[in-house]
């Protein structure tokens, strides 16, 4: 088991290095960093000095190594647009994105899994058909359109909920949270629901199809042939066997919530990393783009590692084989 985890860690490091290479190539070769950092009145000599100071004349590998070393300390240079260290910008924005993502994840899981189980167990029920139609609409509605519709309904027509920003936030030693104020919580409702809806439908459909698959297996048939009541067959045997594939894909899906947050943040003007990233793209603010890329890669790798560990918790076949 230990070798397995070491193996996965090594893989993760490789993935991060690959992403860092892409990020670095962005920084180095898309546009000229010196041009981006200086104004029109900078002399040629000043530019050359800056070039030397930034180490842009060093060999490729040296520059890449330095980039990775800096990135490891969350040091990504100065934003071209904001003229501030990217690290500060990200640190300001990180709490907003994480709070939004985590609340959405929780919503998606808490609603998606039971709905999936229900539709698999009662495929012909009216409620199941309702869920399935709803999920099709959910998959077919682009996230930004959901956001717009919710804004129109709850913000413009009903005027119940705020439609942009985070509301009032509380500062807790370097972390800002909107979860402790009324306006903060109210502001969270619409964006969190928007972000959760798409993931929720995906999770529901996944759980449903996996569960249907498991319900067709021989061991479920044998459970029925032994006369076990449906409650035991469904929840003890079928659901647990559904979890293994579900964990993999939900893991990936939850990671992508961070990426989908870009859209939601843009619709609701939520002051998170996604909004920063989209602004960076429109203004070609390469250091911010590179930094965001590395951050997302890091989150993904962490989520994947957690998923691997969860496998061990769920599946005895892995535990024993690795231990032996």
């Amino acid at each position: 088991m230990l070798t397995f985890i070491l193996h996965r860690l090594l893989q993760s490091v490789l993935v991060i290095l690959a992403v860092a290479l892409i990020a670095f190539s962005l920084f180095r070769y898309v546009g000229d960093p010196v041009n981006a950092m200086t104004g029109q009145d900078t002399t040629l000599q000043q530019r050359e000095e800056l070039r030397e100071r930034l180490g842009l004349n060093d060999p490729f590998l040296v520059q890449y190594g330095r980039f990775v070393a800096d990135a490891a300390q969350a040091e990504f240079g100065i934003s071209y647009r904001h003229r501030r260290p990217v690290r500060e910008l990200l640190a300001e924005r990180l709490p907003a994105t994480l709070e939004l993502s985590i609340v959405s994840m929780a919503l998606a899981l808490l609603l998606g899994i039971p709905m999936g189980v229900y539709t698999a167990l009662k495929p012909k029920g009216i409620l199941s058909r309702g869920f399935m139609s709803l999920s099709l609409v959910g998959v077919s509605l682009p996230t930004f359109l959901i956001g717009i519709l919710l804004i129109l309904l709850f913000g413009v027509v009903l005027r119940w909920l705020p439609t942009f920003g985070r509301g009032e936030v509380v500062h807790l030693s370097g972390w800002t949270t909107g979860l402790l104020t009324k306006s903060g919580l109210q502001s969270l409702i619409l964006p969190a629901f928007t972000l959760a809806l798409f993931q929720m439908t995906l999770i529901m459909r996944l759980v449903r199809s996996e569960m249907l698959e498991v319900l067709r297996t021989d061991f479920i048939k044998f459970c029925r042939a032994r006369g076990l009541p449906s409650r035991l067959v469904h929840f003890r045997h079928a659901l647990k066997n559904t979890l293994v594939p579900v964990i993999t894909i939900t893991g990936l899906q939850l990671g992508s919530i961070i990426a989908f947050a870009i859209i939601t943040e843009s619709v609701f003007q939520w002051p998170g990393m996604g909004l920063l990233f989209i602004q960076a793209i429109t203004t070609v603010d390469i250091p911010v783009m590179a930094a965001y890329l590395c951050m997302v890669a890091f989150f993904f790798v962490v989520i994947n590692l957690v998923v691997d560990l969860l496998y061990f918790a769920v599946d005895p076949r892995l535990r024993v084989r690795r231990a032996a």
Binding site: D218, F219, K221, P316
Partner: peptide, 30 residues
């Protein structure tokens, strides 16, 4: 009646047991 009065043995032992439960828990439950 199933299991109590009429029972069944399947063909493939590789697939007729729940892989995630111990033998004991499957027996005890039944």
């Amino acid at each position: 009646i199933r299991g109590r009065r009429v029972s069944m043995i399947f063909q493939d032992p590789q697939t007729s047991l729940d892989p995630l439960q111990t033998i004991e828990s499957q027996l005890v439950e039944t």
